[in-house]
């Protein structure tokens, strides 16, 4: 920890520099809007963000899915999961809600994935929703039988990376370029990749919430 005056003066200097920089930025930056819109048609989707994320800069996303997997592996390597305190508590309100909400959330996640091709949405958004659903389920004491199966979970977690890698390798065989999807088929490829990614992202986010590896003998019960 640094003395406040020192940290303060650092921060003030930093702020001054940043403001100076920001004010000198061109008011109409060049950006890559024109290029991305011009080649949007070739990408297989009509939502430009998805096009960037999974096609133009799909390689970033490949590594990013790797980051997700690495993060959860890291968390698992660190500690065992804590079963949330609320678990095993009074579910009179939560349980009926979950019964309705969980299927809806899963459905909504799927919808977000699908719509990502045309409008805001996509695997990450869907995955976030799925992760949220998982957290809710955990809080409501559900899904223990799944969470006990570390082997199954592992498969779900790596699914995104593996499908992505296979797609990358396959595209390379087919068209000679890493992640270069055969022309006209971009949409399908993206959908496949995103579907796998959706599952992994959702699982990862939900399991990150647990903060550790599920213990072998099942999670501790509180009832």
């Amino acid at each position: 920890m640094m003395p406040r005056w020192m940290a303060g003066s650092f921060s003030v200097c930093l702020l001054a520099a940043l403001s100076w920089a920001v004010w000198s930025l061109p008011t109409a930056p060049k950006g890559l809007t024109a290029e991305s819109l011009a080649r949007l048609a070739e990408s297989g989707v009509t939502n430009p963000v998805t096009a960037v994320l999974l096609n133009f800069r799909g390689y970033d996303t490949l590594l990013e899915v790797g980051v997700l997997l690495l993060a959860i592996v890291g968390v698992w390597s660190l500690r065992r999961a804590d079963w949330p305190r609320t678990a095993g508590g009074d579910f009179t309100m939560l349980a009926p809600f979950l019964r309705v909400a969980l299927p809806l959330l899963v459905l909504a996640a799927g919808y977000l994935l699908w719509i990502g091709a045309f409008a805001p949405g996509g695997a990450f958004q869907g995955g976030a929703l799925l992760g949220g659903a998982l957290v809710l389920a955990v809080l409501g004491g559900r899904g223990r039988h799944i969470l006990n199966r570390r082997d199954l979970l592992a498969i779900g977690l790596v699914l995104g990376v593996l499908v992505f890698v296979v797609a990358a390798a396959l595209s390379m065989l087919l068209s000679g370029g890493l992640l270069q999807f055969p022309s006209g088929q971009g949409g399908v490829w993206i959908l496949v990749i995103e579907s796998a990614a959706l599952i992994s992202i959702g699982l990862t986010l939900g399991l990150l919430y647990l903060g550790g590896r599920p213990s072998k003998g099942g999670l501790p019960r509180h009832d």
Partner: peptide
């Protein structure tokens, strides 16, 4: 190697 065949600056 142009990933995705797009080439910089749009691609990586």
């Amino acid at each position: 190697h142009q990933v995705g065949g797009w080439g910089a600056p749009l691609g990586i």
